[in-house]
Design a protein around this nucleic acid. Structure first.
Lengths: 374, 374
DNA sequence: TTGTATGCGTTATCAG
DNA sequence: CTGATAACGCATACAA
């Protein structure tokens, strides 16, 4: 029924070992024969059998897609809203691994991480990379995805969202529209690195703001964080619980300042928080974007439940995880032969992908003509 | 490293073939030896290698998890809100298939359904079962999940949500609280069978309502559907576009009737629609549950974004898909040996699971003391 | 660079 | 009911 390696070999007039080499180590076979083999394979619709391959390699043939949420120290507060990201990421990895010799396995129990069950692990949204690196077998190629700056020094590799660039971009959008009285709403700064990164990026754009900018009206204090002094930036900072409830709280806290024109634009750490914020602002009779502009992060489906289209930044997780899949694939290859340390560009480091701006109806120039006047 | 079949055989003092039989056809080996083998296997932590197994069987060893949304005729309107269900279902199937000889493969391209790539298919949320049955190879065990009544007459099997029971349950909750002036909000009745089923169940509870019930105030007309005549039930019917926008529309349509006490409770076809409805009702100054009670279906995470907890029905998809996984597993077994028609209880039929009531703050007895007065 | 031969862990067939 | 033994489709050490 399905063509096997021997069929291809016969058709191409080579030995079956050569066919095998073409698929596993193409450089070790002469260009002329290689193309003959590839042609034959294509004609027959040949695709290597992953099972036989794994069996022959004495490998498991499995790559684990490990959900960091299952290992998280604390319960993720708004986890349920992020199922779409999970789906998106999973499908991206699957697409990449489609015609690799590996199967993607989704973690049922996290039990087998220790054992030699897998040939590599892709970690989805890990809370504490160190923990996972410690948990998994020493030789295992490990790829982290999602939000990451710096990774544990070891064998870990990562592909993630450039949250700092995202924060910068968000602030730039507001500044370019002419806003000068801006507040940033966030929370969980001590636990969640992505929140810190977004804030840092936001600040650094604000530091570049034109000199006519009005200083922050209520300088928040990120406290123990190694962040720029908000008094030097043009940005006010409001810390709340991250989530819809915190967003609603923020709306009540900012109400009078917005109504007096002391704040004309808001950056919000994520859509979930922005959701509550916008709900409550509208309830309080504050119009968006006329009275205040709002921009957030994540581009979640829940935005469709808001009466207006919120401007936000898409995290491009599909791209992140596509890269993660490819990266792992490459690293497995390099790990097998010599046992030599896998090199590649900057091991232990992370490739970051910049978020993309998604326009909405929540952004407009400040009402009172530019924000210079008192 | 990992124990193989021979290790188990040696330890149990039997041949390796016997070990194999214990795992594949337990009845064909004597009880005494069987228990010896099982003991040895447990002691060694032996688990059959799925790859070798598939290779030897000349099977693919793969079960396909096919996403019906990808084959849907029309774009699913509110699909993004249902990612959590996808995740939930997928994980349930994985759990069941954990120690079966099969791997779960998630559809990348739907390309291989024709080929003998898979040994079985689980179809997630299929729009048109007929289409999928036609598309897949004739011998393939096929299991459908999600919303289903009747299946194509052929080899298909299904496990789904008993939407009719859910509709009945929702109506009963309202009736038991004393409501007699009730409206049901739905849409897409001609395309979406689950919506019809919920309505049918809702109606049938209303037909049993006590004789003091006030007749429906604006008898809707489901038109071409084979549904009970709303004039005979105690229920008013409002058809809108399913989704947040339709929900908001419904709120505006019903506003005056609610304010005049002509309607005291609402059933809504799903949470997404209910979301818009509740948003708009609150905006219009209608209090929930004081002015009107609301109950919906699905128990989606988005309910956390509402300022009050909406009562709803959980679809228990985890259980549905756990059954689906087990069912498929059984069917594959029975299909292999004789080529005889797979029997099992009621082939071509569907096992339905009843939704479960999730309490909330959106339900209360009618304000004006029982609903009897004019 | 290429071909030959062996083994990967199971299942299934066939004698006993 | 049980035990040898031949596939299963492929990777790779080894020899050419």
């Amino acid at each position: 029924m399905k063509p096997d390696r021997d069929a291809v070999a016969r058709r191409a007039g080579v030995s079956s070992a050569t066919v095998s080499r073409v698929f596993n180590n193409p450089d070790s076979v002469s260009p002329e024969r290689r193309s003959r083999v590839l042609a034959a394979a294509r004609a027959l619709g040949y695709r290597p059998n992953k099972y036989a391959s794994a069996l022959a390699r004495s490998g498991s043939g499995q790559i684990l897609f490990l959900d960091g949420n299952k290992l998280a120290a604390h319960d993720r507060p708004n986890a349920a809203f992020y199922a779409s990201m999970y789906r998106q990421s999973l499908l991206a990895v699957l697409e990449v691994l489609q015609d690799s010799p590996y199967h993607l396995v989704i973690d049922g129990e996290c039990s087998g991480v220790q054992g030699a069950e897998y040939e590599g692990i892709i970690v989805y949204d890990a809370d504490t990379p160190e923990q996972i690196e410690a948990l998994s077998a020493p030789g295992l190629p490990l790829v982290f995805g999602h939000h990451l700056r710096g990774l544990p020094g070891g064998r870990a590799w990562g592909y993630g969202v450039d949250n700092e660039a995202g924060g910068f971009l968000a602030a730039r959008k507001l500044l370019d529209l002419g806003h000068r009285r801006i507040a940033y709403i966030t929370g969980g700064l001590s636990e969640i690195s992505s929140h810190r990164d977004r804030l840092r990026g936001f600040y650094s754009a604000m530091e570049q703001a034109p000199p006519d900018a009005t200083p922050g009206l209520f300088p928040g204090n990120p406290g123990n964080q190694a962040l720029p002094d908000p008094r030097k930036t043009q940005c006010s900072l409001l810390e709340v619980e991250v989530g819809p409830r915190g967003g609603r709280q923020a709306a009540r806290d900012l109400r009078s300042r917005i109504q007096r024109g002391q704040i004309t634009a808001l950056g919000v750490v994520n859509d979930v928080t922005a959701f509550g914020l916008v709900q409550e602002l509208l309830t309080l009779g504050i119009r968006i974007p006329r009275d205040v502009s709002v921009i957030a992060f994540d581009n979640l489906p829940i935005l469709d439940l808001l009466p207006l289209r919120l401007a936000t930044l898409d995290l491009c997780l599909a791209e992140v995880y596509r890269k993660a899949g490819q990266g792992l694939r490459d690293r497995i290859r390099r790990t097998v032969p010599g046992g030599s340390e896998p090199d590649g560009p900057g091991r232990g480091a992370a490739d970051l992908i910049r978020p993309v701006y998604i326009p909405g109806d929540s952004l407009a120039p400040p009402a009172s003509g530019g924000g210079r006047d008192e």
